[in-house]
């Protein structure tokens, strides 16, 4: 593993013009991702996780304005890259798996055509070679009778199978980065674990960097190397999975972790934690900590610019007025 990150993002900001003013959907996101690493971005619905992933792929709707100090993919500046350059990266060196397996495959073409297309777009191979690769990948993602699946259409497959096909499609060109946006949300609970296991195994086998977007902390605990906690468009806390789960610093992160029951520790029948309140509107000027309205540690200073603290482990960063996330009398005085 080289020391240079494969993906480096600084100050990523996404604005959506709406009738009521500009919606500041994502504000000032920073992170680095190295080869072979898994970064989990967690946060509730609407926190900007999916938008962030689409922004990295360059797949945002045209009306969404993207700005950043840097989005660097293995030496290529994605902010300055031409459409052609981006096209050569997408599908070949960076791939994406979406949340909606039922609708993400084109209903008019066979599985085989759609799988082969990815390879044919990027490599000088014959159709026969592309189909052979498609069979190989289908077998890899655990689809039986792979050869005969090639001539099937998406509507003939179940959701779990379609998501396996989507994964196979994303891996056709052995990408270095894979972005999975809640890949298991739309699936049956029994299938969810299988798909996730598969994704993680393949990621390790192929030594890909992975960004896994999820709101399931149980998943995060199992697969993440790094965790980025997102709230209302900001990363409120980032760090190694170990640090985040052992010493969650931000009040929001602590709240999230309190929401999951732990076998043996959570008492039977005890109420699980909840975070009261609602996410603030991001239309118009957004100042201070977006979580302050729901935070039990909130003080007046939360309405001002929020400092970034490095915690003991230098990859563990916290965006909170309290240097360790807890209110101390000397801070509030």
């Amino acid at each position: 593993m080289s020391n240079d990150p494969i993906l480096s993002v600084r100050d990523l900001t996404l604005d959506i013009p709406t009738a009521g003013g500009t919606l500041h959907a994502v504000r000032g996101i920073d992170f680095d991702l190295h080869r072979g690493e898994t970064l989990c971005i967690v946060g509730e619905s609407g926190s900007g996780k999916s938008l962030t992933s689409l922004a990295l792929m360059g797949l945002l709707a045209p009306k969404i304005q993207r700005s950043a100090a840097r989005i660097d993919f293995d030496g290529t500046d994605l902010l300055k890259a031409s459409r052609r350059q981006l096209r050569h990266l997408r599908g070949a060196r960076m791939s994406m798996i979406f949340q909606e397996p039922m609708t993400s495959l084109n209903p008019a073409y066979t599985i085989g055509d759609q799988l082969a297309e990815t390879l044919l777009l990027h490599r000088k191979v014959s159709r026969a070679q592309a189909r052979a690769r498609a069979v190989e990948l289908l077998e890899k993602v655990g689809i039986t009778a792979a050869e005969s699946r090639l001539s099937q259409f998406p509507h003939q497959l179940s959701g779990g199978l379609r998501q396996r096909v989507m994964i196979a499609m994303a891996l056709m060109c052995e990408p270095e980065l894979i972005i999975a946006d809640e890949p298991t949300t739309a699936l049956d609970v029994t299938i969810q674990a299988q798909i996730l296991r598969l994704l993680v195994d393949l990621q390790r086998e192929m030594n890909m960097a992975m960004i896994l977007i999820t709101h399931d902390l149980g998943v995060v605990a199992r697969v993440a190397d790094k965790v980025a906690v997102m709230y209302a468009g900001e990363l409120v806390e980032t760090g190694s999975a170990k640090a985040i789960f052992r010493q969650p610093a931000h009040p929001y992160t602590r709240g999230l972790i309190n929401c999951i029951p732990v076998p043996g520790r959570t008492e039977r029948g005890a109420r699980l934690g909840t975070i009261p309140g609602i996410v603030p509107s991001l239309v118009g000027e957004v100042n201070g900590c977006p979580f302050r309205g729901r935070c039990d540690q909130a003080v007046d200073a939360c309405a001002n610019a929020i400092p970034l603290h490095q915690l003991d482990d230098d990859t563990h960063e916290l965006r909170c007025v309290h240097p360790d996330g807890h209110r101390h009398e000397e801070v509030t005085a």
Binding site: M57, L59, R87, H88, L89, R90, G91, A92, S95, M96, F98, E100, T103, S104, L105, N106, P107, E117, T118, L121, H122, M166, M169
Partner: peptide, 13 residues
């Protein structure tokens, strides 16, 4: 449709 986004994500022109 979602599959149009998929096609773009594949790197199709």
């Amino acid at each position: 449709a979602d599959y149009i986004r998929t096609a773009r994500a594949k790197g199709a022109s």
